[in-house]
Simulated scan of single mutants.
Amino acid sequence: MQDRWNAFMPYPDAYVGHAAMGPLSGHRLAVKDLFDVAGYPTAAGNAVLLAASGVKTSTAPLVQRILGAGARFVGKTNTDELAYSLIGGNIHFGMPINPSDPNLIPGGSSSGSAVAVAAGLADIGLGTDTSGSIRLPAAINGLVGWRPTHGSLDIGGLHPLAPSFDVPGFMTRSLESMVALMSAVGVPTADDRLSSVLIVENIFDSIEDDTADETIALLRSAAIPVRVAGSIGSFSLEELAAAFVTVLQKEAWESNRSIFERSPQAIAPDIAARLLSGSRLDVGEVREARRVREHFSREIDRLFRDDVVVVLPTLTMSPPKRDAAPESFAAFRSACIKLLCLSGLSGCPQLTFPLASSGRNISLSLLGARSADRMLMTVGKRLRVE
């Protein structure tokens, strides 16, 4: 395969079987290099982990399930180191190239899977989403992205980052392909009891007015009842983001402590700094962050009892250029976390898709109750986004 986008890891080809027939027959599968695939190593974007990996003898159950549905494996894809970034860069293996605008970052950490799908090298991009690593690259590359309900998909054979947030997820070019994927991985059919969608004012106040106007116009054209709320809960977006980052850093440190203590020089400086921050958190800080998380999760559960879906922009600002200064990357990551953290804190599913009626690259998201993944797809289809 010609990969001028640096989407795939440069591993020697090994045979990976798949079912001759199934609901995903004809679909090509690109797998983020966090999942084990028999015949390949698993590097998690780190050269030391690659050297220690060896060739795996078994395949992650989720990958095997997709292969069993007829999808054909086409390679393991590049990822941000340890999956601990939203930018898409990697000091060991390089940054994949954004097919729609090579000057922009591809987004991460599921950068290679997103680029493979956007470039037409794959039809299904399997990735992971901890703090937005499916949703953000899907948004930047004009794809459909699905972060499933936390805990609903098998995580066996997956290198962890922050287990209480980690979710396997997918990117496709169409809603139809995502519907087929949901069926293949066993998501129950939808109970279409949607009563309304919710616009949250403090979320839309943080983005460009044109995006808010186009979103509301789209909802009205689809004849979906719209409700408005001042905020999504009792905490500000800044408070929620701070709690999320605290828990993330603590768990990321616990997941990667051994490699940091063994080979700190083998980790990119910005990622090493975030791991070190996690190691320095005291018990009280983490306890308070988890209290905020639990309180917010209860508030979200109450909100979704009314069969409502929250509609929100996927990103709060335009992505930076791939050669931007580290400060620009940090500012982009910090701004986007304020919205991306909502799904992680609540464990709820989120569906991301391009707003096709716009002349600009705008990505919309739907956030719903736990196990309401199919309802999000139903609403997305009603919005006629493709």
Rank of each mutant, 00 (worst) to 15 (best):
I134D: 13
I124Y: 02
I124P: 07
P106K: 11
S109T: 02
A116Q: 14
G132Y: 12
S109H: 02
P106C: 13
T130M: 04
G125I: 08
G120E: 04
N103Y: 01
T128W: 00
V117H: 14
D123T: 05
L121S: 07
A118K: 03
I124W: 02
V115G: 06
S131W: 06
L126K: 13
I124K: 00
A119R: 12
G112H: 05
I105E: 03
L121T: 02
L104V: 04
D129Q: 15
S109A: 14
S111F: 03
G132N: 10
S131V: 10
L121N: 05
L104S: 07
A122F: 04
A122Y: 13
A116R: 12
L126D: 09
A118I: 05
R135N: 09
G112F: 04
D123M: 00
A122E: 09
A116Y: 01
L104K: 15
T130K: 02
T128F: 00
S110K: 08
A118S: 15
V117E: 10
R135E: 14
G107M: 04
A116E: 13
V115T: 11
I134V: 15
G127S: 02
G125F: 07
G107A: 07
T130W: 04
G108Q: 14
G112K: 11
A116W: 04
S110F: 02
L126F: 05
V117A: 08
L104Y: 01
I124V: 11
D123Q: 08
D129I: 08
G108T: 12
L136E: 11
I124R: 05
V117Y: 10
G127Q: 07
L136T: 15
G120H: 07
S113E: 08
P106F: 03
G127N: 02
G107P: 07
S113I: 03
G125L: 08
G120F: 07
G108H: 11
D129R: 02
A119V: 12
G132H: 10
T130H: 01
L121E: 08
S109V: 07
A114S: 15
S109D: 09
A122V: 13
S131R: 13
A122I: 12
A119G: 07
L121V: 10
S110Y: 01
S110N: 08
G107V: 04
G107E: 02
G112Y: 08
A119P: 09
T128N: 05
S113W: 02
S133K: 06
G112I: 07
P106I: 14
T130L: 05
A118F: 00
T130R: 04
V115M: 11
P106L: 10
D129N: 11
L136P: 01
S110V: 05
G107R: 07
A114N: 10
A118R: 03
P106H: 11
P106N: 11
I134R: 08
L136Y: 00
L136S: 15
V117C: 15
A122C: 09
G132V: 14
S111P: 04
G132C: 13
N103D: 15
T128Q: 04
L104P: 01
A116H: 06
L126N: 09
S131M: 15
A118V: 03
G120P: 10
A119S: 15
I134G: 10
P106T: 12
A119H: 06
A119E: 06
S111G: 00
G125A: 02
P106D: 11
S113Q: 08
V115W: 03
P106E: 14
L126Y: 01
G132I: 13
T130S: 06
N103C: 05
G125M: 05
G108S: 13
I124H: 05
D129G: 01
G125H: 08
I105N: 06
